[in-house]
């Protein structure tokens, strides 16, 4: 396992990476909060992210990007650096439609790191983590 012992997580650096370019920038995802064991990324509601204009619920495709990023960055935090990894498996449960106009937050934690692989899980919610809209379980290959 690679670790960088003197690495420190700086939210502004993560935000700079997320807004810079690519799919994360298109979806407007950014850092929301973190603690020793978890990280939260946020995806503000935007008309372009909607699946069904009648309900205003966010598209599952956009949500899965948020889940993938959050689950993956939880592992980087635990590894201690932005080290290369790829998603092996991502399972998303869509518990209920998301609310029109509400920012969706995904809180993820890395549960385990073994040689070559790491595992995380998370929940996505608008206001209250006890009322999740989505659940995620993901595994990653560490490069």
């Amino acid at each position: 396992m690679n670790t960088v012992s003197d690495w420190q997580f700086v939210p502004a650096e993560l935000d700079a990476f997320l807004v810079d370019k690519g799919h994360n920038a298109l979806l407007g995802q950014r850092y929301h909060a973190h603690d020793a064991d978890w990280i939260e990324l946020a995806m503000p509601w935007n008309e372009r992210l909607v699946d069904d204009p009648d309900t205003g619920a966010m598209a599952r495709g956009a949500i899965m990007t948020l889940l993938d990023n959050s689950a993956g960055i939880a592992i980087m935090l635990k590894r201690g650096g932005y080290l290369p990894q790829v998603t092996v498996d991502l399972r998303a449960d869509f518990v209920r439609p998301t609310e029109r106009g509400a920012t969706l937050v995904c809180r993820s934690e890395c549960l385990s790191i073994v040689p070559g692989f790491a595992f995380s899980r998370g929940i996505a919610y608008e206001r209250d983590p006890s009322d999740p809209a989505c659940l995620v379980t993901a595994s990653f290959a560490l490069l």
Binding site: H23, N24, A59, R60, M64, T65, D68, V86
Partner: peptide, 9 residues
């Protein structure tokens, strides 16, 4: 492609 775009498709 981002894994999320792959999942969306």
């Amino acid at each position: 492609f981002h894994g999320g775009a792959v999942a969306a498709l």
